[in-house]
């Protein structure tokens, strides 16, 4: 059985859902961030895809497209030592606090 990302030829009878959603700001942002980091030599398309493929299979399948992108980029930046777990956790907590106080 191929790995979770390798979908070509997987048995599927699921109809194609042709509804297209308007991208949220953060979705446009994670897309652009990936390109900007690519131009700086910090991320290639293959590296980013490999990072997404290392997510647990259940998570790979249940996340939306750009959620997978965000999770993949986080993994890649941690692996490369560009960011640390502590830095990300701290910033996440900070943003959450701001949101709760309505100043996000």
């Amino acid at each position: 059985m191929p790995r979770v990302h390798d979908r070509g030829g997987w048995p599927s009878e699921e109809l194609i859902n042709r509804i297209e959603h308007q991208l949220a700001d953060w979705e446009r942002r994670i897309d652009a961030l990936n390109v900007v980091l690519g131009e700086k030599g910090l991320r290639s398309t293959d590296e980013h895809r490999r990072a997404m493929e290392s997510l647990p299979p259940q998570q790979y399948e249940s996340l939306t497209y750009y959620q997978r992108w965000a999770a993949g980029l986080e993994l890649l930046l941690l692996e490369k030592g560009v960011l640390t777990r502590e830095e990300i956790d701290r910033q996440m907590a900070e943003l959450e606090r701001h949101e709760r106080q309505g100043i996000g």
């Binding site: 949220a24 953060w26 942002r29 994670i30 961030l33 900007v36 980091l37 700086k40 910090l42 996340l63 750009y66 959620q67 965000a70 999770a71 980029l73 986080e74 930046l77 560009v82 960011l83 830095e87 990300i88 910033q91 996440m92 943003l95 959450e96 949101e99």
Partner: peptide, 21 residues
Amino acid sequence: LDYYARLTQALEDLLVAKGVC
């Protein structure tokens, strides 16, 4: 939904603060 929007913001904030972009 909020978690990944927030994660995106956190990654950008940190990369900017570090001068990466």
